[in-house]
């Protein structure tokens, strides 16, 4: 493999990693706050893509301005899911049961999307989906550059919210000790509901970038979930910065192995890398304990 191809694979991995970090951000946030593994994350990305498609096709609203509508809509969906499904889970078996409950949620959302849109493939379009900028001999796709920028902005925003605001302190307090948080006057249920709302809301942003770079139908979410879980586990479950780091790490490994050796071996190599990293640091790149006490 030439040096140019190697460099190209690294750049590609970093930029694509940004889009995956966007998709994983909601998943890690919800786990961090509620110990809930949201198996429905993949289908929520697809739901976000369909909402953007509808706004774009029927109302002529661009993909990025459309986020002003889709993010609040998805936030409301997250609030409803927390209220009707997640709140009912008992603390002692919440993580285990959440897999079943969110899988059921995924099936319901998939069914509604299939009934509404059918199974034909769609893809989001905008002027910046196919354009690119030429930098030092490489064409960098605008859509990935925007996605990477959004990922950084979003992750900084979430980090700021969690660690520099009163709400963030309430979130972390209710995580560390629910009873103590209750005693000092924090409305734990409200904190959790809003956190899940935010986690699902940001997935709308991921939906735009996934839908603009991939053709999708209501079944496309399943292919995503294994990779998103790998990212979240590697980054440290609950760690926002870890999601970004792990997404870039996994995608760079994937793309370099695909270019240098074989695309068939790429997923095998990154899963091996995942096992190796976790055997050395079981808490992931950014451990959860550290995340909660920051």
């Amino acid at each position: 493999m030439s040096g140019t191809a190697f460099l190209e694979a690294i750049i590609d991995g970093i930029l694509t990693g940004g889009v995956y970090a966007l998709m994983a951000a909601g998943l890690t946030l919800i786990f961090g706050v509620m110990d809930i593994i949201n198996i429905a994350q993949g289908i929520m990305v697809i739901l976000g893509a369909y909402l953007s498609l509808e706004l774009s096709v029927h109302f002529g609203i661009g993909l990025l301005p459309g986020l002003l509508i889709t993010v609040p809509l998805m936030f409301c969906l997250g609030v409803a899911i927390e209220f009707f499904f997640m709140r009912r889970l008992h603390d002692e078996d919440r993580t285990k049961m959440s897999i079943l409950v969110t899988y059921a949620v995924a099936i319901v959302i998939e069914g509604i999307l299939t009934a509404t849109f059918g199974v034909n493939y769609q893809q989001l379009s905008a002027s910046y989906v196919n354009s690119s900028v030429y930098v030092f001999g490489f064409y960098l796709p605008d859509i990935y550059l925007i996605g990477f920028g959004m990922a950084i902005a979003l992750l900084v925003g979430l980090y700021y919210m969690l660690y520099r605001t009163k709400f963030g302190r309430a979130v972390r307090a209710s995580l560390q000790n629910r009873t103590a948080a209750d005693l000092i006057g924090i409305d734990v249920n409200r904190v959790r509901t809003i956190s899940v709302g935010i986690g699902v809301g940001v997935t709308a942003i991921a939906g735009v970038f996934f839908g603009a770079t991939n053709a999708f139908n209501p079944n496309s979410g399943y292919d995503l979930i294994s990779r998103l879980l790998a990212i979240v586990i590697l980054g440290g479950m609950g760690s926002i910065a870890g999601a970004m780091g792990a997404a870039v790490f996994i995608l760079v490994i994937n793309d370099v192995v695909a270019a240098w050796w074989s695309p068939t071996w790429a997923p095998i190599v990154y899963f091996v890398a995942l096992v190796v990293v976790l055997s050395i640091r079981p808490q992931g790149l950014f451990g959860r304990a550290a995340v909660r006490t920051q």
Partner: peptide, 14 residues
């Protein structure tokens, strides 16, 4: 490339 691939940008870029 594997059937489970979700990202084709690397191979298509190659």
């Amino acid at each position: 490339f594997p059937a489970e691939a979700t990202d084709y940008s690397a191979i298509a870029g190659q």
